[in-house]
């Protein structure tokens, strides 16, 4: 007996490809050969029917899942559009009626020409007028109908467009939400890193924490910590709970000496209202009487220049955390 595995399957074998056909596992060429076989062989069609029924059972092997209501709505809207278009096409076909044929022989009969000449001319004039009038009336009616049809279709197109726009808006809204959550997540991660750093700083003998900051009425949730390195000019300011600065504004950290502020750093807060600001301490730090965070226009300078604060103070130094 021949082993089926030993057969040469490089030779086209449309009958042997029927299971692959039922499972959609054929190349276009193989599929085409099976189609040719099915066109001429009732036995092949019977065999395929049995194989397809077996393949259909595989569709039970899936987890039940629910399409959105939008699928049903769009499907039925499309069906309604098809119905409407076929109605319009039927009406158009009905309005085009076949013309009655004219007998050439009767027209060319010489005996009738003399009697009918004058009458024909009169009838022709009247006929043309009547035909034009009727034709105008029919065209008016058709134009009116077409206009109404167009309005109906326009309404349906508008409705479909509205549904598509709704869907797009939902996707965009979801995308924006994902982007926002991603930003917040990044900000929280950054804050966690900063807090770990702060823990390190406050527990490390090299650093000391001379000041805590609390928000005033403009930023009641704000808290801040200023840590400086012993015997060095490195300092870091960590802040949380500050609202984002308005457009074209920034926050500014200043130290005040003899009532005159000296800006040491500017910064913006992240999505979570947090910021870590590294800066160099000015000379003679012991001479400063207080520290302050204010809201200043973008472009305000800091460094060695002494300046007056122009914006409102949002945080001031405190001896203890809130």
């Amino acid at each position: 007996m021949t082993d089926p595995n030993s057969l040469d399957f490089t030779v086209p074998d449309p009958w042997g490809d029927l299971p692959g056909y039922a499972l959609n596992a054929l190349s276009p060429e193989e599929r085409s050969r099976v189609d040719d076989l099915l066109a001429v062989s009732p036995e092949a069609r019977d065999e395929l029917r049995l194989l397809l029924e077996a393949a259909e059972n595989l569709s039970y092997l899936v987890t039940h899942a629910e399409p959105s209501e939008r699928v049903r709505r769009l499907l039925l809207a499309q069906a309604d559009t098809d119905i409407h278009l076929s109605d319009v096409a039927r009406e158009d076909a009905r309005s085009i009626r076949p013309r009655r044929s004219i007998s050439v022989r009767s027209v060319l009969n010489p005996a009738r020409i003399a009697y009918t000449g004058v009458a024909a001319a009169l009838i022709a004039v009247l006929g043309v007028a009547v035909i034009f009038s009727a034709e105008n009336s029919r065209l008016d009616s058709e134009v009116g109908q077409l206009r109404a049809d167009m309005q109906t279709e326009l309404a349906q197109v508008t409705e479909l467009r509205s549904m598509v726009e709704d869907t797009n808006a939902q996707f965009i809204s979801q995308d924006e939400e994902v982007a926002r959550l991603t930003a917040v997540n990044a900000a929280v991660n950054e804050a966690l890193k900063n807090m770990q750093w702060l823990t390190y700083v406050t527990q490390n003998r090299e650093f000391r924490v001379p000041n805590y900051f609390v928000g005033n009425a403009q930023a009641p949730e704000a808290n801040g910590t200023l840590a400086v390195k012993n015997f060095d000019d490195e300092a870091v300011f960590l802040v949380s709970g500050l609202p984002p600065a308005p457009d074209n504004y920034q926050y500014m950290l200043s130290l005040v000496r003899d009532g005159v502020p000296e800006a040491v750093a500017t910064f913006q807060v992240n999505e979570a209202g947090m910021a870590r600001v590294d800066f160099k301490l000015p000379d003679n730090i012991g001479q400063f009487e207080r520290a302050v965070v204010s809201l200043e226009p973008l472009g305000s300078q800091f460094g060695s220049d002494v300046m007056a604060l122009s914006g409102p103070e949002v945080m001031t130094a405190s001896e203890s955390p809130r």
Binding site: P4, N5, S6, L7, F9, T10, D17, P19, A25
Partner: peptide
């Protein structure tokens, strides 16, 4: 072999 696959499918 392709023939084996076809046989298994059937």
């Amino acid at each position: 072999p392709l023939g084996t696959v076809k046989t298994r499918m059937r």
